[in-house]
Simulated scan of single mutants.
Amino acid sequence: MTKQADERPVLSVSGLDVSFHTMRGEVKAVSDVSFDLKRGEVLALVGESGSGKSVSTRAVMGIVRGNATINAKRMELAGHDLLNIDDEQKRKLRGRVISLVFQDALSALNPVLSIGDQLGELYRTHLGISKKEARERSIELLRSVHLASADKRIDDFPHQFSGGMRQRILIASAIALKPEVLIADEPTTALDVTVQAQILDLLDELRDELGMAILLITHDLGVVARMAERVAVMYAGRLVETGNVDDIFRAPAHPYTAALMASAPRLETVEKLEPIKGSPPNLIAPPPGCAFNPRCTHLGALCTQLRPELVPAAHGRSHACHYPLVETAHVG
């Protein structure tokens, strides 16, 4: 789905590195990741589990857990330089400027507090309003995400809602303060297809109403096709291909992108799915050359010797492959 986006980036990240120090060695979870997110745009981060998608976005939000080292050349959010502000200033940006929808609503919501208390706390903490006004706003917020009987159910607890309803409540919590950037981390995981479609429709509707930019983290290519204008494919902590969704789905340049597409089910075909053979590499000791080379079916002489850089190509595309599957004219 294509909508008109403001050309100004609301989030700009360049040269992001995230590593974790363990007893076995340094885990380079994210390496040299760069992307821009425009106002009103949906950018999808795609890749297998462990590819670095969630760690990248948590580094931007300043909520990476564990013994992590984060470095970047640039991280700017709505005019704020995230590299030169302290933790308290970052905390104030969370919720008001950037917000996160987790994939597991039951774990993200506090089981011993009512939904009204959890939503109301956002308003009371950030806006300093009374408990009564916070409750009224919370009811309106639940109505905005199409939760039936919001005025009656606001005193219920998370376990009293279905999975789809809890996901709506989590989205309500994320948009309460009308952030400029919404990070949706696998927002439809474990939901049935009907509820999944409802959640995606809701995100699309809220995007139109609030003018938010959405950074969508997913492994589901169907969700990408449904929601996003641009896609960034990650493998072993690095970006391997970026571009317009239609262009990449029509003709992927990187073998990993093509393999992801071949392993995804399609309604129009009954052909056997082709799983990607092998496993993602050990990020403590990745293979030499291209990290995908042990699993790649288009292996060439350079693949085990030299790691390919992400190079810009025509039509806003880029790829990191010595032997791309399609010819793309390089830029610069």
Rank of each mutant, 00 (worst) to 15 (best):
K3H: 08
Q4Y: 11
Q4P: 04
A5W: 11
D6W: 08
E7H: 08
E7S: 12
R8Y: 07
L11H: 06
V13H: 05
V13S: 03
G15F: 08
D17R: 06
V18G: 02
V18T: 05
H21L: 15
T22H: 12
M23P: 06
A29Q: 09
V33D: 00
S34Q: 05
F35K: 01
D36G: 13
D36K: 07
D36R: 04
K38L: 13
K38N: 11
G40A: 08
A44E: 01
L45G: 10
V46Q: 03
S49Q: 07
K53R: 06
S56A: 06
S56I: 11
R58S: 04
R58C: 04
G62D: 00
G62C: 04
A68Q: 10
T69I: 13
I70D: 00
A72Y: 03
K73T: 10
M75R: 08
L77R: 04
L83G: 13
D86S: 02
E88C: 03
L93E: 05
R94C: 07
G95K: 00
R96I: 02
V101L: 02
L109R: 01
L109W: 10
S114V: 08
G116P: 04
D117I: 01
L119E: 06
I129N: 00
K131C: 03
R137W: 08
L141P: 01
L142E: 05
K152Q: 15
I154Q: 03
I154T: 03
D155V: 05
D155A: 14
F157N: 10
H159S: 12
F161P: 02
G164I: 07
M165K: 01
R166D: 07
Q167V: 12
R168M: 10
I171W: 02
I171C: 04
S173P: 00
E180C: 03
E186T: 01
A197Y: 07
Q198G: 00
L202Q: 02
L210V: 00
M212T: 02
M212N: 01
I214V: 14
H219M: 05
L221P: 02
L221V: 08
R226E: 13
A228Y: 06
E229F: 13
V231C: 10
Y235K: 05
L239P: 11
N244A: 14
D246H: 15
D247P: 00
R250K: 10
A251N: 15
P252K: 05
A253M: 04
H254D: 11
P255R: 03
Y256N: 09
T257C: 14
A259F: 01
L260G: 12
S263P: 01
A264M: 12
T269D: 03
V270A: 15
V270N: 15
K277E: 15
G278S: 04
L283G: 11
P286C: 10
P287H: 06
P288M: 10
C290K: 04
R295I: 13
T297L: 15
H298L: 12
L299E: 12
T304Y: 09
T304S: 15
E309R: 08
E309V: 02
A314N: 07
A314S: 12
S318K: 01
H322G: 14
P324I: 06
P324Y: 01
T328L: 13
A329G: 02
H330D: 11
V331A: 12
